[in-house]
Design a protein around this nucleic acid. Structure first.
Lengths: 136, 136
DNA sequence: CAGCATCCCAAGTGATACTG
DNA sequence: CAGTATCACTTGGGATGCTG
């Protein structure tokens, strides 16, 4: 919709011409809602660097639960951002690596992460200012 | 952390040197988790175009509830991405507009939204492929 | 018009225990 | 090692009704 100016005045979030479908079927939201999860960006960021095994990822993101790590990896795999390779060793080991689609996504995504790191202080300041004016 | 290679091997999500604080205090996550909300990007996308009043935003995002629109606007305002101006007319009207900080954020963010729109089909295809292989 | 307050349900998430 | 299963809890978010 960003690339489609003549639609900009129409309802956002529903650029589809498919009124029969559910409300949540905006293509952009369909994609964004997935990578917007609490842990998705952290995992993508890790795997953008190099492949990792399950346990390594767990150590890289210390406060993620085993449950959420598994689930996030499955979701990212399902959407085609990462691949999962099982090595039938004993005990088994599993390696996760980013796909081409994942790298394609991470290119613009990393810019946002970069922005967040760079401008964190400004956001914090805005928050404090807002909270100050609120306790009046 | 992306811009800080020598920290890339340390735990992601906790690049702070402040162990006393809570786990969720990674700067990047602190910022990202806010704009990752279900409605934040939609509102930002609308206000990136031009200022809007409350009711206009409501019409632009038809399936948002009044409650969530208010809450999302407050959150975005608190983080400094948008401004809120009250016109003491009768009945009152309130206008929301993007701040410089908001525009600064939206620049990289819009690239991700663009990507989502462009690659939606690929993601859908990946999902179907995954789901197919799963029902074995 | 632009909210706030309340209720309530569904989804997300963590903790724990168990397994090939 | 890399999961799966279950439960309990917290949070998100919709519906409704009321207000300046």
């Amino acid at each position: 919709m960003i690339a489609n100016p003549d639609r900009a005045q129409k309802p956002i979030g529903k650029p589809c011409d498919t009124p029969g479908r559910d409300a949540g079927n905006c293509p952009v939201r369909d994609v964004i809602d997935r990578i917007a999860g609490k842990w998705s960006t952290l995992i993508l960021e890790a795997l953008a660097k190099r492949p990792y095994r399950f346990g390594e990822l767990r150590r890289l993101v210390p406060d993620i639960s085993q449950r959420m790590l598994t689930q996030t990896l499955r979701d990212l795999q399902r959407d085609g951002y990462i691949d999962r390779e099982v090595f039938p060793t004993k005990p088994p080991s599993v390696e996760y690596r980013m796909t081409d689609l994942g790298r394609s996504l991470f290119e613009p995504l990393s810019k946002v992460l970069q922005w967040a790191g760079d401008n964190h202080a400004l956001v914090r300041a805005a928050r404090e200012k807002y909270d100050q004016s609120e306790l009046a």
